[in-house]
Write a protein that binds this DNA or RNA. Sequence first.
DNA 1: CGTGCAGTTGACGACACTCAACCCTGGTGG
DNA 2: CCACCAGGGTTGAGTGTCGTCAACTGCACG
Lengths: 239, 239
Amino acid sequence: MSLEDPALQMNLGELAELPIFSKLTLPQLGAITSGGKVVTTSHRDNVFKAGQFATHFGVVLSGAYKLTRINHKNEETVVHFGACGDVLAAMIMNQQGAIYPVTATSMGASRYLQLPRETYVDEWLKHPELIIEIQKSISSRMSVLHENLAMQNAPLSTRIAIILMRLAALKSDSEVLQLPMPLTRKEIAESTGTRVESVIRVMSDWSKMGIIKTDENRIVILQPGKLLEYARNQTVTGF
Amino acid sequence: MSLEDPALQMNLGELAELPIFSKLTLPQLGAITSGGKVVTTSHRDNVFKAGQFATHFGVVLSGAYKLTRINHKNEETVVHFGACGDVLAAMIMNQQGAIYPVTATSMGASRYLQLPRETYVDEWLKHPELIIEIQKSISSRMSVLHENLAMQNAPLSTRIAIILMRLAALKSDSEVLQLPMPLTRKEIAESTGTRVESVIRVMSDWSKMGIIKTDENRIVILQPGKLLEYARNQTVTGF
DNA sequence: CGTGCAGTTGACGACACTCAACCCTGGTGG
DNA sequence: CCACCAGGGTTGAGTGTCGTCAACTGCACG
C-alpha cells in the first residue's frame, strides 16, 4: 500500500510556495504542520477509504489523487480530481469520530502531506488566513460539482471535452497540452457518469481527427481549440 | 422583490436555537449578527442572483430556498435546497469582490437572517465553533452533491424517489409525510437533470398507486415504504 | 377575458447502455 | 520459456429509456 518513508523530512520551503500556505510565517507553518509527514504513493494506492474512521487529512504536494464513492450499482464514481495544493478530507476533520465519505486513490506516483486530525482542530482552525484558503478551495470544488450536475444531460462529447479541458488546466488556445496524470477511459466514464464503451467511441473519433492522442496512459490534447468547441457544444466545422 | 421590514427586530432567542449557533453565548451571538436583519420573502423572490457581487450572506430561519444555476441550454438547474438553519453563500464571503455562483430563490413564504460580508470576515472567522458548524453544513451539502452525481444514471424513478425522501427528511417508515415546501414537477426535473414530462409520468403512476398525492403544490408521501423501495431501485412487489 | 403557469398524455426518435466479442500488453507462475 | 490471466482499449448489433414535440386541460390573476 502506501509507501511511508519516515526518513523523508518535510520541506517547509516547498510548503511555503503553495498558495494555501502563502500567508503564513515560517514559525506558523511549523505549528500548522505539527505531527505531519510527507507520504509518497504509487499508482492506485489508497490514501484512505470511504467508511474508515477519519484520523488524518492531507495536502497534495505532487501528482494527483482521485476521490471516488460507490454508486447504486456498486460501481465507482469519481467525484473529484485532487491536484497539487488541494486539501483532502479537511472539511470533516472537525467532527470527532467522522468517517471518510469518499475513497482517495493515487493516480500515478504522487506525494501528499499527511496531518493528524488534532493538528486541524488545534492549529488550523485558529488561523483565519488558513480557513479562508480552505474555504476558497472547497468553494471552487463545489462550483465544479455544480457544473457537473448542470451538464448531466449535455451530449457525451461535451461532457468529456469539459473534463479533459479542466484537467489540462488550459491556459492558451494553441498549446499542445498533456494531462498531468494517467487517466484511463474507464476513469473518464466514472467521472462523467457514463460507460467505457461510450467514452471510447467519442475519444477514438477524436484520435482519428488528430484532436487528442494517448501515450502510455497519458492523454495529450493536440488541438485544444477543437476540444473547446466540443466543450461549448458547437458544431466542429472543417475537420 | 424581497420584502424587507426594517421594523422587524432580530429575535436572538430564535437564533440561539439553531444548531449552528448553539455553542455561542448571547453576547457572542450579538457580535456575530451585527449589521444583520431578518428578511421575509414570498414565493419566487430572489435573495440574490448568480453573477451579482456578493455583499451579503444568509442563514435560513424558516421555509426554504432553492439554489440554482444555468446549464448549457440556458435552463435552470437546482443544485441545493436550503432549509431552516442552512447557511447560504458563506463560503464565498472571504473573497473580496466575489460574485454569487448561484441564484437563491424563495420557495413559498420564507425568512432568512441577512448579514453583510464584513460580519463574516470580522466576526465569524474568529469563532472556531462557528467555523466548525459551517464546515459541517457544507460538508453534508457536498455529500448530497456527490450522491446526486453517483445517481446520475440510475433509473428516473430512483432519482425522484431519493429527492422526495431527502426533502421529506424521513424519520419513520410508516408516517405520512408532507414536504416542507411547495415543489413543482418542473423543479424536480431541474434538480434531477431530466424533463418535466418524464417526472410527470413517474409521479402520475405513483399518484394512481396511492404512494403520493399533491395538495395545492404540496407533495404528500402517503407510503414512504414504497417510495423507499423505489429509492433503493428494488422492484415494488404487490399492487 | 386573455395570458401564463402547472399538469397531463401520446407519438416518435435518438443517444447511450448492454452484451458480446476481440486485440494487445505486461506481469506471474509452472 | 511459455501459458495464463488481468487490465486497457476497441468494435458491432440490438435494445430501451428518456428527450422532444405537440396538443390539451384547469386554474389563477390582472
